[in-house]
Design a protein around this nucleic acid. Structure first.
Lengths: 362, 362
DNA sequence: GGACGAATTGTTAGCGGTAACGGTGGCTCG
DNA sequence: CGAGCCACCGTTACCGCTAACAATTCGTCC
């Protein structure tokens, strides 16, 4: 038996499906992508043929023929590993569907020239768009460099709507307010807050949500102790110690991320305070840390993987529009957060009972 | 001016390079890949043209034409997020170079049928090879399923050389022995060991290294307290408490991974023991946890990203050989580990001075 | 009933590379 | 000195899919 032509792997192609369904290859292609302008009966026949032959399109051929973007950059700067892995999982799923490759580039260092340099790496390679997870989503040097290189980008988890870029985020203020309300509902009236790094707008948003919830409860915000942190474990230690050193220490601490919350738990333990009996401590992000510590952390979950997927999808749409010449508007997507209740949070000491009904534990 | 043919993006192609260098496209291709049978002068001319035009090959076109593997599976089962992100970084780099896509699949659950089911997902999609990071690298159901589906795979971080599969690992026993020797050098003579999950051969290897180092120092292994752990934070708490409950508690604890070491540190703190003044605690893996805790952990670093790269490269070579019909031998690669000294480890209490010279901190 | 626009489908020509094979030219060897 | 072989390079024909356009069908309206 003669080999058909070249190396014919046993792959099913559009041609096979077309033959099976009695249509042309082009029609099959149309059905597979969006399926605009295909009669319902033909579509059905094609789908049936696809199912029968177990066809799955070859993404290499697809992106080659369509002239689609193939390299999308992802510039990260040591966010927590937990964040990064979740992010990569989401981004990878979207990238595979779109048939494009993710090009990772680490950006160590916070100096402007280091960031600019890392960005230039991308301009040099043939990266057609860039995803910027936090904290780089708002790094001015990076954005400036991309701007001059003419490479579109999408920011992730910026606290506020962007001016000139795509953005995917959650409503940090609302999430923070929800968490604060949860603490209030449990009976806490003296709540310490640890702010996040001021170089990220989400820090301000989280603080804003805290303030709003306090005020909405008719309490005095000025009475609540607030300390500055920088999202690092270390900065959390310092901030937590300052809070507990006060003459009237809070009965609950709301840290702007899990790392700082974990630090606060550590500080409390070293002072002989039990969590949550003596003090409640809650975080933000729901990274893996939240469950590898003890007690497990009550926190806010961001849908990180979904955000990454959204980001890539948005970026690809923009690139497509760019190529087609149509100027799409700068879009923004706001995804839902979730309040995760675990063991690090309870009613304040001395409270007879929690003020509000208990929510189910996860 | 008429558009060349279809949508011509401003990309540089082999044709352009060929024209510039005064050769055929095929020759350029040859130079780019391996470059067998190309005269030195021509190769030089081509390389110059490539540099001049800033050419970079289109991976989609390449893998389409070459008929290479395009989908490589990666079946993971909640290893620590830190491990996964490092692993993904390495795997992604290799995947992009090879022009293939990574298809992630989470395998929750440890039951055999769950694992088999997750594996079957891969057989259904057109995944041509699978990477198995720990702990799935040795999961019998997964391997059996892949075997019957005829999908090649590569195991990562299996403790021992494989029988029927590719494998990438470090020398766990040697690493463990090195760490043990480090503790001995510091003057510890009563070292507690927390074993890893027995479902992984690396656990046994790490214990073996510990034993060998103790014996090499002429000490009695039986005198050293050993507890069983399962690589989880929780199991580390239990094991550490047992160790410290002994009537003659150890002056140092060597946990088989960082999570359990972190748990041990937590237990020590809650008992009022200071680390490392009162007790030294060391781990294994050097995950991000090691530096987000306090004190930072002395541990063994595995080159996770490099292992992932190796794994993918090995797997692709195998697939290529498979396709060509040549039966390549089952290879194994052993990469180097590194001892990382941080603050969680010091001389035993009461020791006048460390027995050995101090190594530099990282 | 025929003209006409919209909806649906087919045809053609590549996307950018590379496998396979065919042609040089130079060198060895009988 | 011609056969034979090898190192080197070009030609051809695609890989699997889709943009652009051509062709066809279909309904609709006067």
């Amino acid at each position: 038996m003669s080999r058909p032509s070249r190396r014919s792997r046993g792959t099913v192609t559009v041609q096979d499906v077309a033959r099976e369904a009695g249509v042309s290859a082009m029609t099959v292609s149309r059905v597979v992508n969006g399926g605009s302008n295909v009669r319902e009966t033909t579509r059905h026949a094609v789908l049936e043929a696809i199912a029968k032959l177990n066809y799955s399109p070859n993404s290499a051929a697809r992106s080659l023929a369509a002239g689609e973007a193939t390299q999308i950059g992802l510039l990260y700067s040591n966010p927590s590993a937990a964040y990064l892995s979740q992010f990569l999982i989401g981004a990878l799923a979207a990238a595979r569907r779109a048939g494009c490759h993710l090009v990772l580039e680490a950006c160590e260092g916070e100096r402007a020239d280091e960031q600019a340099e890392a960005t230039r790496q991308f301009a040099a390679t043939s990266v057609e768009g860039v995803i910027l997870p936090p904290p780089l989503s708002e790094a001015a040097p990076v954005r400036a460099e991309l701007e001059t290189a003419g490479i579109p980008w999408v920011s992730v988890a910026m606290g506020l709507p962007p001016e000139r870029s795509l953005n995917v985020r959650i409503d940090d203020a609302a999430a923070s307010a929800a968490m604060t309300k949860h603490l209030l509902d449990m009976g806490h009236r003296n709540i310490g807050f640890i702010r996040g790094n001021p170089n990220q707008t989400s820090s301000a948003e989280r603080h804003r949500g805290f303030v709003e919830a306090i005020e909405a409860a008719g309490l005095d915000v000025k009475a609540m102790p607030v300390e500055q942190g920088y999202f690092t474990f270390r900065s959390g230690i310092v901030a937590a110690e300052r809070l507990l050193d006060r003459k009237n220490p809070p009965t609950a601490i709301f840290a702007s991320n899990d790392d700082m919350a974990a630090a606060a738990v550590g500080v409390a333990h070293r002072r002989g305070l039990h969590v949550p009996q003596d003090i409640s401590i809650v975080g933000f992000d729901d990274t893996a840390l939240a469950t590898t510590m003890w007690p497990e952390l009550t926190t806010v979950r961001q849908p990180i993987a979904a955000m990454a997927e959204s980001a890539l999808t948005l970026l690809l749409a923009r690139l497509r529009a760019h190529r087609a010449g149509t100027n799409d508007k700068l879009e923004e997507q706001v995804l839902d957060f979730e309040l995760i209740q675990r063991e690090s949070c309870g009613p304040p000491p001395g409270a007879g009972k929690p003020a509000a009904g208990r929510a189910a534990r996860r």
